[in-house]
Design a protein around this nucleic acid. Structure first.
Lengths: 147, 147
DNA sequence: TGTGAAAGTCGCGCCGT
DNA sequence: ACGGCGCGACTTTCACA
């Protein structure tokens, strides 16, 4: 199922998800219908879960991205999860090992907005906020996958 | 530039980046060429930076994802950044505020592999490893963008 | 709006079991 | 012989000018 050809297809889609089947076919030395069929199978097997546009957060008005470590109070876990789902600014929320811990990624328009959101968090958890300065690595898959 | 129509276009591309211009046109009540022109402008303005496939890490052999908080030793920061770039398993690396702190996201095939990687990290930093149990929220943009 | 390219569907042929 | 997979031809839809 995931042979060398499909790895190449996924690698190419990773780089540009809007590439045509014909172009993909050239890259992997297959005809367009053959590539389409492989992709259809990867989709129905749940390997490929979708295709998404990458947007510059800065350019669309979210210059500030913060990571907030939350040690949720033992009795407040359900309430905390609901809070995460209710906030539009929460772009990622990881439930991680450790004492009732969550790691929340927030994209906001201003520090004022961040402050207001964190106000709500501290009722349910001890928070530790880190501002993202830069992101030297950002990829969807480990490079080992393509080797 | 980023008016209500472009927000709708980006929202649709977020959901399915391989949608045709014609389909997009129906959603936003515009002709296909009009939509294509808007997208071309968003791309050249750097708002849209690319299109990518979403892959199920589990299904491609990376069942374990960990977040590692690294307090890098003061003199080792350059070396640490180089190390991050050299590891294929590092799928994200955030440089965050706080004392020489990085947050590193690792996707690995096994705990053994994770252990080996962390071995290399501890020469350059104090590490705190968190295993990701689940991810209740995962989106590219804050939902406020679409409102 | 027209022209060329692309995607989706079909039957056919190849190959390994 | 049969099931996988890839190919080429055709129809519909799409992209670009």
């Amino acid at each position: 199922m995931i042979d060398a050809t499909n790895r190449k297809i996924i690698a190419a889609l990773q780089e540009n998800a809007r590439i045509s089947f014909a172009e993909l076919g050239k890259k992997v030395h297959l005809s367009a219908p053959a590539v389409a069929e492989r992709i259809r199978k990867l989709e129905s097997a749940g390997v490929i879960t979708g295709y998404s546009v990458k947007v510059d957060l800065d350019k669309v008005g979210y210059p500030i991205v913060a990571l907030v470590q939350c040690k949720v109070y033992r009795t407040k876990e359900r309430e905390f999860k609901a809070l995460m789902l209710s906030y539009d600014e929460v772009v990622a929320c990881y439930n991680v090992t450790g004492e009732q811990a969550f790691l929340v990624k927030l994209a906001v328009k201003s520090m004022t907005e961040l402050d207001e959101i964190l106000e709500a968090f501290i009722d349910l958890s001890d928070t530790n906020t880190m501002m993202i300065l830069s992101q030297p690595v950002d990829r969807a898959l480990p490079d080992t996958f393509f080797k």
